[in-house]
Simulated scan of single mutants.
Amino acid sequence: MARTQDDSLDRPYDFRAQRLFVEDALAEGALVSLDRDRAHYVSDVIRLEVGGHIHLFNGRDGEWRAVREAGGRREALLRCEARLRRQTPPPDLDYAFAPLKHARLDYMVQKAVEMGAGRLVPVMTRRTQATRVNTERMRANVIEAAEQCGILNPPAVLEPEPLARWLAGLAPERRLVFCDEAAPEADPMAALRPAIDGPLAVLIGPEGGFDDEERRRLAARPGTVVLSLGPRILRADTAAVAALALVEAARHAAR
């Protein structure tokens, strides 16, 4: 019996394989010509020879095994051979955060990708220390994390906006998990249980926390869950990992 292009979906997935994000459409037999930077990566960084295989994904068409057909250091041509994983819907989870500076922001973005965020939303609070946000650098970190962690849907990176405007624009049906360092300690899993079905947003504040007016406005929004992350004051990048891990655990427990 003839094999179909999806027969390979029954095989164990090789998470050790090199993965590359591309913008091109992916389908059986499709040719993907890499730009200079990605050709350099394929040729000089991972040293993929002609005839060697790599996994490609674009956030739309699933993941494909591709073979390198030709090219040098400045160009490379790949051909899709078989689809390895079908595309899944992106997670309906917004991760909103007060921007940090440089390396700590890089770390936070990478961890948010690993923890299943669907969109990354920088929000400017009154105590936000970083006055400029390099969204292109954020997108590069998103792609790198998605390539390394087997993720099919790299999160979208939104442009920064003031906290009040972002809050006003949240759809009423999107529950908000407001991580408040001043909230009384309580069982976080119990607090999250009623909020995990449906669209969700998780908000982490800046170093120094939210001011009183911001805190009151956030807590007053209908559908908001005010969440304590424990007795310790966490750095914002650490709080991001803790909060998203709790959300993932609560969703897993509810399945």
Rank of each mutant, 00 (worst) to 15 (best):
K111L: 00
A140Y: 03
M138R: 08
R174H: 13
G150T: 11
I143F: 10
I151D: 09
M115C: 10
T128E: 10
R137M: 10
A112E: 06
E144W: 12
M189E: 15
V123E: 09
T131I: 05
A145Y: 02
E181H: 00
K111D: 00
A130L: 07
I151Y: 06
E147F: 09
R139S: 08
N153L: 06
I151E: 12
A145M: 03
I196W: 14
I151S: 01
G116A: 07
L120Y: 05
V109I: 13
M189D: 12
D180L: 02
A112T: 09
M115S: 03
L192A: 07
P172I: 05
V121C: 04
A164E: 13
A190V: 13
N141W: 02
A117Y: 06
V142M: 04
E114C: 03
P155G: 06
T128I: 07
P194N: 10
L176Y: 02
D180I: 04
R193C: 01
E147R: 12
G169E: 08
V121M: 03
R137L: 08
C179P: 02
G198M: 15
D187T: 02
P155W: 05
L176N: 05
I143W: 10
E144P: 14
I196V: 15
G118E: 09
M189R: 14
M115D: 00
R165I: 02
L163I: 09
V142Y: 03
G150E: 05
R126D: 13
V177E: 00
L152K: 07
V177R: 01
P194F: 09
Q148Y: 07
A156W: 01
D187A: 02
A186T: 01
L192P: 10
I143P: 11
V113Q: 01
P154G: 13
G198T: 12
P162M: 00
A195M: 15
V113E: 01
T135R: 11
T128Q: 04
R127P: 06
L176T: 02
N134I: 12
G198C: 14
R174P: 12
A183T: 03
A140Q: 14
V177L: 00
E144L: 14
E159H: 00
E114K: 03
A195F: 15
L152F: 11
I196G: 13
D197C: 14
G118F: 04
T135N: 08
Q110C: 04
M189L: 15
A146T: 13
V121E: 01
L152P: 07
A117E: 06
D187P: 01
A156S: 08
I143Q: 05
L158H: 13
R139T: 12
V133I: 14
Q148C: 11
L167E: 11
N153E: 11
V113D: 02
M138V: 15
A112G: 12
E173W: 10
